[in-house]
């Protein structure tokens, strides 16, 4: 399911003394089946953009197209809900949305809201809790008795339980320790591959964007300034700096190595493994006098 934004603008509190334009002239396309990363400095409009992807906000200008549904400022509530079923959002600190007495009920909340029969919702919930690596017996516990990391997994299960075609992730690893971070990111990657889910990752981490995404959108000052494959976006440090962004560590290290070794800038290495291959190759080939 493609998501397309055409000339989208959004102004908060329009017509009051406190009005503020958060987005303007946004034209982006998120291809079906892609893993798209949205990067940008704090205040660049990333999170406002994200809320347009499942109609939590309606554009005050332009149109948002999610599959066959067109959303403009006139679109009514019913249609918005059908979009929300197809596009799931995992917000930052998603554990803050838990409220039910048991983990199982909480995970079933979304599916039930969208009219999935109870038995099926329960089956999905059980399956997802297992998939997310929560220990046996978690389903009957109160979500508030779990550890922070487990609560986060339950909340993520609650979004996945709606079986969305598109999964939007807003800094899903904020506040986790390194191993928790890696597990969650690998899990989303696996889901993306296995379930053929379109994944949209909104992140501050250039490393995650470079490692996982196949399509990158750069936001700056409320509008999209660059869109393309990560190899293009992350190759040019000078250009990213203009938007107050940095290249991933791997690329920074690669450039430093190339500069000292007198090599031309090669295609950016997006993962540590790629960088290691590249460096090992360059060192072995290097040989003696240059």
């Amino acid at each position: 399911m493609d998501i397309t934004l055409q000339r989208v603008g959004y102004t908060y509190a329009a017509g009051t003394p406190f009005q503020k334009q958060a987005l303007h002239d946004v034209d982006v396309r998120i291809p079906d089946g892609s893993y798209t990363a949205v990067i940008g400095h704090t205040g660049s409009g990333k999170s406002t953009l994200l809320q347009h992807l499942n109609a939590l906000l309606k554009p005050t200008e332009g149109t948002v197209r999610v599959g066959d549904t067109v959303i403009t400022k006139e679109t009514k509530g019913k249609q918005l809900r059908s979009v929300r079923r197809k596009v799931g959002i995992v917000f930052q600190f998603p554990e803050h949305q838990l409220f039910e007495e048991t983990v199982l009920k909480d995970v079933m909340f979304g599916p039930l809201n969208f009219g999935i029969p109870e038995a099926e919702a329960a089956a999905r919930a059980e399956e997802l809790l297992g998939l997310l690596g929560l220990p046996e017996g978690t389903a009957e516990k109160s979500p508030f008795d779990l550890s922070g990391g487990q609560m986060r997994r339950v909340a993520i299960a609650g979004v996945l339980a709606m079986d969305p075609d598109v999964l939007v992730l807003d800094e899903p690893t904020a506040g986790l320790d390194p191993s928790g971070r890696r597990e969650i990111m690998d899990l989303f990657h696996r889901l993306h591959e296995e379930r053929d889910m379109t994944t949209i990752l909104v992140t501050h981490s250039m490393e995650d964007a470079a490692r996982y995404a196949d399509h990158v959108i750069v936001m700056h000052d409320g509008t999209d300034v660059l869109e393309g494959p990560p190899e293009d976006v992350f190759g040019d440090a000078g250009r990213l700096a203009r938007w107050r962004l940095e290249v991933p560590r791997t690329v920074a290290f690669q450039r430093e190595f190339e500069r000292g070794a007198g090599l031309p800038e090669g295609p950016p290495c997006l993962t540590e493994e790629q960088l290691a291959d590249y460096l090992a190759g360059a060192v072995k080939k290097g040989g003696g006098a240059r």
Binding site: E256, F257, G260, L279, V283
Partner: peptide
């Protein structure tokens, strides 16, 4: 990182 890149430079020119 400084040390690592330096030793990569040397091993490249000696290797």
């Amino acid at each position: 990182e400084r040390k690592l890149v330096e030793s990569l430079w040397t091993s490249r020119s000696n290797g």
